[in-house]
Design a protein around this nucleic acid. Structure first.
Length: 546
RNA sequence: GCCCCUGUAGCUCAGCGGAUAGAGCGUCGCCCUCCGGAGGCGAAAGCGCAGGUUCGAGUCCUGCCAGGGGCACCA
């Protein structure tokens, strides 16, 4: 059992015993016991605030309650606990001997890369993460890459945390924009100027001569969209983003699902006709205005298709939960989507919408404007060619989705050695280098059962162990909070601790005690596993050499 | 005007309601007969403002100020 759980159980037992003996109101479940690792080592290895949060209800004061609990805990403390003390306003601090960390190390090593840090917080819940879903009217830009990294890493984290995950890209391959795309393509093919409001991008110019279909704007548009989508797919694969499904909007419309969805809303009295259009009474469900579902020209609106699509996700395909990742520029559609989905009978909360704030780039002193509207968006392809896929992924996962970020291309490119990705990958490469060196020296790891891990007592070793021991909880927190960024933070911390260990704790040097070297070799292996898991969740490679 | 996000070190960003707020870059000092110095050690430097909730607030709530994004029969 994990140390945290052992301590939580012990604290729980202590509250039960004290409550019974003193007649205090102290009802609390073991999984409600809050335990944390104090930042300051003088406060012990673990700490609980239970006396402070329970004192008022129990009709006593924190320190008095803590005193009772500590007496109980001293009599019945888990293995490795060396002292239980009251500190500050009523914290109960546990100090442990190093054995708990050696146990944790053995646990990690026997569990292995495949199975370590797989906290089951999802309980097999079927969740879809829909992300990117950029219109196939042009190459995807850096913002898409940023939000895409988020969606992909979130999917990886959720999968590791016990969710059954599907990654989906919704392809907007229908409607007016496809006709516009077709119009632009045909104009390009005929050597005519692209009409106003059309797509001016160079990618269409190179695509146009390849089109040998009819002079039909829809046919031409679909053809172009398909080709552009292939490019998008290739770009995404280059940064390790792969989808389970590419779901076609046209297929939704052609299936009649849009009409069915509108009919369903109509049954609930939420649809009306006005000015030749069909409207959704979204204001009934908290939206700021009513919304058009079918335009007066007969086309379904994006919203109508999106509602049919979400009905399909929840009610047809049976996802328990859907997480949509959009750019902040799509904020305006969230309220009506939420209203519509609720009207279709999906419980609020089953649909989560994550909005990625804008990403801006600077190149040295020069600002690089983003956004399709400005027409100066940087293609993701261009960025990846510039700084590489690993740097792209880790940079995009260093800040949270909510934070509008700016980053300097020049600092990543020209001073590439200063790039954070190298700091982390250097740790991985050093481990690889050490393995090669060990091979040269014919040093082999002995069986774990024959190695004395308790020889690991150096501060550098213990700090590294503490970090590795936290990974399962970090994965759980990242999944629950939908914050893959927490993995990035952890990986960087692990890399930093490894560099310190590497600096101060030689293994293959001549004067090192062979038994200690063996224990250290296993600690290195554990670090390798931790890095592999962490970087794997981020979609960043863990190179054995650089 | 309304809605969403953000304001933490000179810059770019982390930070589970906990006890002395972290990292990278930049600045200033150290450490290479040592398994990869793309490293390590140290220094200076910070929570926009004002209230509130709480035993405890960078974190939660309200207001203000500032920045970004959104308010279509476009997607």
């Amino acid at each position: 059992m994990a140390m945290r759980d052992q301590l939580a159980e012990a604290v729980h037992q202590a509250t039960v015993a004290v409550a019974a003996r003193e007649g205090l109101d102290l009802e609390i479940r073991a999984d409600q016991v809050h335990l944390e690792r104090p930042a300051n080592r003088e406060h012990g290895d673990w700490s609980t605030n239970i006396a402070m949060v329970s004192a008022k209800k129990a009709g006593t004061n924190p320190r008095a309650l803590a005193t009772l609990l500590v007496a109980e805990l001293e009599a019945h403390s888990p293995d490795h606990v060396t002292s239980v003390e009251i500190a500050g306003p009523g914290f109960i601090n546990f100090s442990l001997d190093g054995g708990w960390l050696h146990d944790a190390l053995a646990e990690l090593l026997t569990t292995g890369e495949e199975n370590y840090a797989r906290p089951d917080v999802g309980h097999g819940e079927k969740v879809m993460v829909e992300f990117i879903s950029a219109n196939p009217t042009g190459p995807i830009h850096v913002g898409n890459g940023w939000w895409g990294s988020y969606g992909d890493a979130l999917a990886r984290v959720l999968a590791r945390a016990g969710y059954q995950v599907t990654r989906e890209y919704y392809v907007n391959d229908t409607g007016g924009q496809i006709r516009t795309l077709g119009l632009s393509l045909l104009a390009r093919r005929a050597g005519e100027p692209v009409p106003e409001g059309g797509y001016q991008g160079e990618y269409l110019a190179s695509l146009a001569p390849l089109y040998d279909g009819p002079e039909d704007v829809t046919a031409a548009g679909r053809w172009a969209a398909e080709h552009i989508l292939e490019g998008i797919k290739a770009t995404l694969e280059s940064v390790g983003i792969v989808f389970d499904e590419w779901y076609s909007q046209a297929s939704i419309e052609e299936s009649g699902a849009v009409d069915e969805t509108i009919a369903l809303l109509a049954e609930k009295g939420l649809v009306f006709e006005q000015d030749g259009a069909t409207w959704f009474r979204a204001t009934e469900l908290g939206d700021v205005r009513d919304r058009v579902l079918r335009k007066s020209n007969g086309d379904a609106t994006y919203l109508a298709g999106d509602l049919a699509y979400h009905r399909n996700k929840f009610l047809i395909r049976g996802f328990d939960r859907v997480i949509d990742v959009f750019g902040a520029d799509h904020h305006g559609q969230v309220a009506s989507l939420m209203a519509g989905v609720e009207a279709l009978g999906v419980a609020p909360g089953q649909l989560e919408v994550k909005l990625g704030q804008m990403v801006s780039l600077v190149d040295g002193d020069e600002a690089v404007k983003m956004g399709k509207r400005a027409g100066t968006a940087i293609d993701l392809d261009t960025l990846v060619a510039d700084i590489g896929p690993d740097a792209t992924r880790i940079l995009s996962l260093m800040s949270t989705l909510d934070q509008a970020t700016t980053f300097d291309l020049a600092s990543v490119r020209e001073q590439s050695s200063e790039n954070p990705v190298y700091y982390v990958q250097m740790a991985s490469a050093r481990i690889g280098g050490m393995a090669r060196k060990a091979g040269e020296k014919s040093v082999k790891r002995r069986e774990l059962s024959e190695v004395d891990l308790s020889l690991l007592t150096h501060d550098r070793e213990l700090e590294l162990l503490r970090c590795l021991e936290e990974l399962p909880e970090v994965v759980a927190d990242a999944a629950i909070d939908r914050l893959p960024t927490k993995i990035t933070t952890w990986v960087r911390r692990l890399a930093g601790l490894f560099h310190g260990f590497y600096h101060d704790c030689p293994i293959l040097a001549d004067e090192v005690d062979p038994d200690l070297a063996q224990a250290r070799l296993w600690l290195v292996e554990a670090t390798r596993i931790g890095l592999a898991i962490g970087l794997g969740l981020l979609g960043v490679s863990a190179p054995e050499a650089m």
